[in-house]
Amino acid sequence: MVNFNGNLLSKNTFYLNHENRGLRYGDALFESIRVVNGKIFFWEDHYLRLMASMRILRMEIPMNFTMEFLEEQIMAAVKANALLEKPARVRFTVFRNNGGLYLPQTNDVSYIIETSVLDSPFYTLNNETYEVELFKDFYVNPDMLSTLKTNNKAINVVGSIYAAENGYQNCLLLNNEKKVVEALNGNLFLVKDQLIKTPSLKDGCLNGIVRKKLIGILGALDNYNFEEAFISPFELQKADELFITNAIRGIQPITKYRKKEYGNKVASDLLGKLNAAARLN
């Protein structure tokens, strides 16, 4: 079942057509959300990011789009798919309504809420081989739009195909200044000695939810130094650890980049703190 504008519909229902602006122009935003036993992880952060992104894209925010209303709509979809007592992945998509060419006829929006089951109720560390490479066919243009979670993900799609064709588990994206920005599906963190770095939003990376949470966690710890600063490709092979963050996986350690292999001691430590933050959220 999917929740389309408050109506619970079978997944094979034809409720969109060829005029959909998300299909035509990528005129849409989405949030990937983890829900465990009826609890939405970091819901306030997801909500505030969605509202800010809608404003940036000049979408009309409906009066009923309160935190409470959208939470009710998410939970209705979770319940309809018998996932109230299971870990679930939720995709909440908002798109501008049909009409117009590049210039919309309206700024009013519709939404779709989809769900699927997850393997674990909490973030877990994946210790399997996770090799990455730079994706250099196309570059991220660092601006405010690149920080949003929009449906314009052509570089991520092509990069994912490149990774699969070449036996990598992921790729790292560069911006047009050749700085390392992020992974195909999340933010990047680098560990060298006691220093932990992640690219700045000014470099063009996604304004990730778990990125934000980890920055807050690191700011309260005395045993690590943290900074938002650009990462050069050269630094990758000098690092002790690299890991990727997103709202569904939590923290994914990178085990290999070219000839360099990495540990996951810091990633493991931070994962426990992230799970604690999720429970307290």
Rank of each mutant, 00 (worst) to 15 (best):
D143K: 13
Y168S: 00
I112K: 05
A247Y: 05
L23W: 06
V109A: 02
L57E: 07
F4Q: 02
N185I: 10
V158R: 02
A183R: 02
A267R: 01
D137C: 06
A183H: 00
A276W: 08
D222Y: 09
K256S: 06
L70H: 03
P62Q: 07
T106V: 07
D143L: 12
L214S: 04
R58Y: 09
Y123N: 00
G263C: 10
K86H: 14
L70G: 01
I33M: 10
M67E: 09
S110W: 02
K213R: 15
N152Q: 15
N275I: 08
F42I: 13
V36Y: 02
V157G: 03
V2T: 06
L242C: 07
F234D: 05
Y257T: 01
G186D: 03
K178P: 03
F4E: 01
S200G: 11
L148C: 11
M67G: 14
K212E: 06
L134N: 05
L206N: 04
V180W: 02
A220G: 07
I56P: 03
G219H: 09
V78S: 00
G38S: 14
S53H: 09
K273L: 15
L172C: 05
I244W: 01
Y139A: 11
Y47E: 04
Y168D: 00
V90R: 01
M144S: 09
C171F: 02
E235F: 05
E131S: 15
C205R: 04
K202L: 14
E235W: 04
F230Y: 11
I33Y: 03
F122E: 05
A267V: 02
L236M: 08
N5M: 13
T129L: 15
E114F: 08
N141L: 13
